[in-house]
Computed example of a mutant assay.
Amino acid sequence: MLDVETYNIFKDSVKEFAKREVSGIASKMDREDYFPMDVFKKMGKAGFLGTTIPEKYGGSGMDYESQAIIEEELGYYSPSLALSFGAHSNLCLDNLYRNGSEEIRKNYVPKLASGEWLGSLCLTEPSSGSDALAMKTHAEKKGDHYVLSGSKTYITNAPYADLFLVYARTGQSYTAFVVLSDDMGFSRGKKFDKMGMRGSPTGEIFFDEIKLGEDRIIGKFGDAKNIILSGLNSERVILSFIFTGISRRSLEIALDYAINRKQFGLPISDFELIQEKLAVMYTKLQTSRLLCEKSLKTLEKDKMDALSAASAIYYAAECSEYISREAIQILGGLGYIREGEVERFLRDAILGQIGAGTTEIRKKLISQGLVKRYKEKGNIED
């Protein structure tokens, strides 16, 4: 953990970057489903992409809290760019560094940290989503290499990524591999046209007997189950801050409108029904952020704590959908048209209850974690 002043300075620099580089293109990203590769590369030059990576490998040598700061400040203007950042920086790059060999770190981590390469993580398949471990993508050892076959779908950054962290079944176990976009047998499928998070490219990819050497294995052969589970927990905590960004921005838009919009000769912020909405929106924002920050501290100590991670994204996502929906109601007709901006935040917020494990899966993880904790400790204190 860094000192408070360092985090404050870092947060100010991210805020300034997001306002300068992201605020003006957020609507274009949504309308045109446009991914701003130039801005992404600027993030690399600014040191934002490799915040959890040591300077030795081209990173900033910071921590998960710095990643969370970036997610919220990007999410404030463009949740879709925040999503692509998270998929690259947390799901792929951080995972690769934490579990990869020294050779993998030297060969691939600097290119991802600098923004030269775009990274992607590949878990979901056409027949396995919530039941991710039922994957059919598989790798078999043949001589001195492994042959990877299968497909992945709904993969963030897939249409443009250069490097993929791919999970595959290897017999009765699982192994993580590095796959490059120029590997023989790799191909991309269609890019999906989504209702929200537009501008964050999502697609499908195929592996047709790709030959991979031992040097492409992340961690140990057949030992990727814990990498998958710890990666999902890290993803849930870090991505939850996208939704606090959505909530904060939606509340501010609604508050500004309520103060300046007059009906019956009074600002609508004077009306009790509007005051009730603003009060609930603010309280949900603050409680969701506190839960996310608590889970962030837990993540730094224990990446296998699914109870903490699932509760953070579960509540933050639900709150962002509620707050952006209420903001539309306060803005009325202006909220319903694209000029009002909050309709985009509502569409983006909906992904929060689907991606990184559905709301239903999160509730299951939370209840299972509570039962386990109570059996072990006799209480629910963590």
Rank of each mutant, 00 (worst) to 15 (best):
M1R: 11
L2Q: 09
V4G: 01
T6C: 04
Y7I: 03
S13V: 15
R20S: 10
V22W: 01
K28G: 08
M29G: 03
D30W: 09
R31N: 03
M43V: 11
G47Y: 14
P54K: 05
E55F: 00
D63M: 00
E71Q: 07
E72Q: 13
E73T: 12
L74Q: 05
Y76I: 02
Y77L: 00
S78I: 08
S80F: 05
L83Y: 07
H88L: 11
S89H: 07
N90A: 02
G100H: 04
E103T: 11
E103Y: 11
E103F: 13
R105I: 09
K106P: 06
N107R: 15
Y108W: 09
V109Q: 07
A113W: 05
W117H: 07
L118M: 11
C122F: 01
E125W: 08
S127Y: 12
S127F: 12
D131A: 09
K136R: 01
K136D: 14
E140R: 03
K141Y: 06
V147E: 12
A158L: 09
A161Q: 07
L163S: 02
F164G: 07
F164Q: 11
L165G: 07
T170C: 06
T170N: 02
T170P: 03
A176E: 12
F177E: 14
V178K: 02
D182W: 12
D183W: 10
M184I: 15
G185I: 15
G189H: 04
G189Y: 06
K190D: 10
K191V: 15
K191Q: 12
F192G: 00
F192N: 01
D193Y: 03
K194N: 06
R198L: 08
G203S: 01
G203T: 06
I205M: 01
I210T: 04
I217E: 06
N226I: 05
R236S: 05
V237Q: 10
S240A: 12
I242F: 10
I246A: 07
S247M: 13
R249W: 10
L251S: 00
E252D: 10
A254N: 04
L255G: 07
Y257G: 03
K262R: 15
P267H: 14
I268K: 03
S269F: 15
D270H: 15
D270S: 13
E276W: 15
Y282N: 10
L285G: 07
L285D: 05
L285I: 15
S288L: 04
E293M: 02
K294M: 09
L296M: 14
L296H: 10
L296W: 13
D305T: 11
L307I: 03
A309T: 10
A310W: 01
A310M: 08
A312S: 13
Y314G: 00
Y314P: 01
A317L: 11
C319A: 15
S320A: 14
Y322I: 12
S324G: 02
A327V: 11
I328M: 08
Q329Y: 14
I330F: 08
R338V: 04
E343Y: 14
E343D: 06
F345C: 00
L346R: 06
L351H: 07
I354E: 10
A356V: 08
A356H: 01
L365M: 12
S367T: 13
Y374S: 05
E376R: 12
N379K: 03
I380H: 01
